[in-house]
Design a protein around this nucleic acid. Sequence first.
DNA 1: GCGGATCAC
DNA 2: TATGGTGATCCGC
Length: 659
Amino acid sequence: MKKDKEILKKVTALKEELAAVSEAHLEACMNKANALLSSLYQQYDFTRTIVHMDMDAFYAAVEMRDNPSLANIPMAVGGEDMLSTSNYIARRYGVRAAMPGFIARKLCADLVIVPTDMAKYSAVSRVIRSVLSQYDPNMTPLSLDEAYMDFTDHLVKRRELDDQSRTFPEFSETMCRCEPEERLGVVSSTEGISSAVGDGVADVPNLNEDNLQNSVATDDTRILPSATNSDTEPSEARIMKDTTVSTDTSQCPRCNMPHNPKRILFDVGVEDAVREMRHRIHLKTRLTASAGIAANCLLAKICSDQNKPNGQYMLPFTVDAVQDFMKDLPVRKVPGVGKVSERQLAAFDVKVCSDFYKHRDVLYFLYSGGMFEYFLSVYLGLGANRLSKNEDGPKSKSVERTFRGMSDPDQLRTLCHELSLELAEDLKSAKNLQGKTVTLKIKLVTFEVKTRSQSLPTATNDGEDIYNVANQLLTTEMKNCSSKPLKLRLMGVRMSNFTTSDSKQQKLKVIRDTNSTPSDKRISFLDKIEAERKSEKVNQSCNEPLGLLAYMSTDKPIGTTSNISNAGRNVSTKLSSVWDESGDVTTRKTGKIIELLEGASNTDPWSLADSTSSSVATIPSDSTVKTATKYGPLDFYRSSKSGALDPWAKDDSSSLGGF
DNA sequence: GCGGATCAC
DNA sequence: TATGGTGATCCGC
Ligand SMILES: Nc1ccn([C@H]2C[C@H](O)[C@@H](COP(=O)(O)OP(=O)(O)OP(=O)(O)O)O2)c(=O)n1
Ligand SMILES: [Mg+2]
């Protein structure tokens, strides 16, 4: 592939850089790394018991459950174009998620592809979460089929539970699988028969036995029933096959199936608690789950993969066990290390996690701060041991669509409009979110991806507002490569930069006080001027005028590239802020703009021309210009220490009310 | 703030 | 013949 070559190119460039570096430098890197390492080493914390659970072949399993004819054949969920996942039979042929259907068929001619049904998976997910919540009400879902839980509190409470509340019916397709509380009083009829039952229920072949050697006995509540404090391994209790058969033949009034006289008793230790949770998921959904148990989220997540499918793995809560586990773990198993990182790391002989340590000097040199620290912390097996709060909502929302090559501008615009309106609807249904940054994403037929974004001075979730901006970005792109047709295979629109409760709407304010506080980076054109000054290495003296700010009326939306001309000069500038008649910033088209033109003269006439106009130095006679009639200059100074003055301010009494 | 990349699911 | 959609993050500028 072409991508492969690019990665390799980057790697060789880095290698050259590395070769050019002195040994002393590398030694310094080593010292830095060691310092970081010893500070990280302090951070081991085995006080929490974190569980990560992950459904097996989730979408595929749901479809197999609902259509038994799919149960024993290779199948996948998705479309002819792209697969979302595959069942374990198909995986034997190499059929994987994110694989185009037609390639999958080359690997497996008999593959059956079932269309995705997200609504169904969401519903199943809710059922699963209802079970998980009983083990940790603060459970944090990562996706429909995956969640972190902190079992620490549950395990304490669990010691007080009686056997009955840890007893559940064995799985059977044809018998009642209702929860005890759902069975109401019926449980009493089988009282006293809660004997243990083994693993390996017939309907669910346990493809991967849980690793038993891992269950080292300690006096930790995580592992043993504290009540007995016995050395017996928890699963052993259940491995005894003395199933008791009840004479109870009554039917569950809820599911109309006979009660299952076979019961499984789970002990109070962690591993049985997690088995119990998985079993209850199975009872409720007829789907299997895998789980990992460890001291933090990182380890738990990695562990949940160890005995997949339908298995679980507990990593003992000791430094030795953790380091031993990490030592030979391929870096690709580490969350955050994907295909590309794996390649890059491999190029520097980093293949397993202990290589993070072995090559720490080189990695320190190659990677920047955050990533390097992450690598070392991963090597040590460190990770978050508190579940992150269930957040402040999404940080972005987007809609995108893939289609067959399209280049007709009208068609593209129509699509852009559709996407914008859909996005607006999404935003409104998502707590009426409003955002400031609109991003247009396009993918060329060559698969090259580009994003173009523009931040508005105020937040919106209006479909036409979004379209105004997105369409501008699109227009700019089409113009930008006008030589070619700009043939797209995908278009997307994203909104981000959502307003938080404290953010007030900006209003226009004129400041002439040179002692005022320096501005932050809100004003892009001020930054631009700064940058230009710096690049020219011109040292401006204090209070020297940089230019004139023109503000004038426009009927063009934000994002429009316009030319402001004056005194024979002109600048091409993207309209970044538009105010309505009352001085409020607006996302709508008609309003006032304010832009900077260096070296402009107040005695010469100004003009504003839309970028569609070919002539900028003179005033064209199209309608755009006719609306650009109102203008006025504004002196713009730079203050001594502070950099640029801030002619804007958040909501303030001196806002201009109309010009 | 912007744009490219990478990643997860 | 044919290569997804959504959301997040990081880096470098
Ligand atoms: N590139 C991907 C990966 C996954 N998914 C969806 C389909 C999966 O069923 C679901 C869960 O993802 P997992 O990574 O957990 O994969 P599975 O659950 O399918 O399989 P596994 O048994 O490996 O967990 O997310 C997707 O749409 N696109
Ligand atoms: Mg899964």
